[in-house]
């Protein structure tokens, strides 16, 4: 369970990215976060694993308080939260498997990670994660040799290798073409259903949000402006989140709108 209580995030340059947000996300939920760029979507996700400075309020994940957690507590918490990025954030020069092994870093003893001598069961977990996203045949290839969609799947495998209870996906399909976008979204949906992993996804495209989301959270200027079932949302409420009418740019299949 993830609980935000009046949580605010202020960056060192004084920008208030999240303003007194309170919300509760139950285990196994599939939540889509929408809003304009700069509305605080990424910040909301990064508040969950403590990558941004939370100046007031509280954020609890599985009962562990993020605000004021020690470095060791934060590492332990992050090791249970997988994260997926818009730009994939893979080490391009490294092989696929060594990218996925990054998800195991927190679980192996220091000397093993320094020498690169991974325990057999950790390697097995990495391979299983790659099998789940269907690119196990690329295991020993360089990450830079993969297509965008494949790279994002490596990103998902890296998150899965952590054996996470929560997955945070920050605009996972923004750098992908429509077909690949649907494939990645389906992967995420399947992982959520089959493994019961709580999933928080930032999306820019409204039609994708409608198609795959269950619960929708709308942010505007760092404030929570909508929280509810995605099927109950109408165009007026979208307009309130975005502060303007919906344009074809807000839809993945822009031509259909």
């Amino acid at each position: 369970m993830i609980e935000f209580t009046e949580a605010s995030v202020v960056y060192p340059n004084g920008f208030r990215a999240l303003d007194k947000v309170s919300l509760t996300i139950e285990d196994g939920e599939f939540v889509v976060v929408v809003g304009l760029s700069g509305a605080g979507k990424s910040t909301l996700l990064r508040a969950v694993n403590g990558l941004v400075p939370i100046v007031e309020g509280s954020v609890k994940v599985h009962g562990q308080e993020v605000v004021g957690a020690t470095a060791a507590e934060l590492r332990e918490l992050r090791s249970r939260i997988g994260m997926i990025f818009q730009t994939f954030n893979l080490v391009n020069r490294a092989t696929v498997v060594s990218n996925v092994m990054m998800g195991r870093l927190s679980k192996v003893p220091r000397w093993r990670s320094i020498l690169g001598m991974w325990p057999a069961q950790d390697k097995e977990l990495a391979l299983q994660a790659l099998e789940r996203v269907g690119i196990v045949e690329k295991t020993y290839e360089r990450a830079s040799n993969l297509s965008g969609g494949q790279q994002q799947r490596v990103g998902i495998a890296r998150a899965l290798a952590q054996e996470p209870t929560v997955i945070l996906a920050d605009e996972p399909v923004a750098s992908l073409d429509p077909v690949t976008s649907h494939m990645v979204m389906r992967d995420l949906q399947r992982i959520n259903r089959e493994l019961n992993i709580t999933t928080l996804i930032n999306l820019h495209f409204l039609d994708l949000a409608r198609q795959y989301g269950k619960r929708l959270i709308g942010l505007r200027d760092g404030k929570l402006v909508y929280d509810g079932d995605i099927n109950d949302v109408d165009d007026d409420q979208f307009r309130e989140i975005y502060g303007r009418a919906i344009t074809p740019d807000d839809l993945l299949e822009g031509a259909e709108a």
Binding site: L125, G134, E163, L195
Partner: peptide
Amino acid sequence: MTVPDLVPDAVSDVPRPKEPQ
């Protein structure tokens, strides 16, 4: 926490590549 079985039936028959030596 127990290790979940990550392998879905649909893709489990893809052979794993050999680690290059």
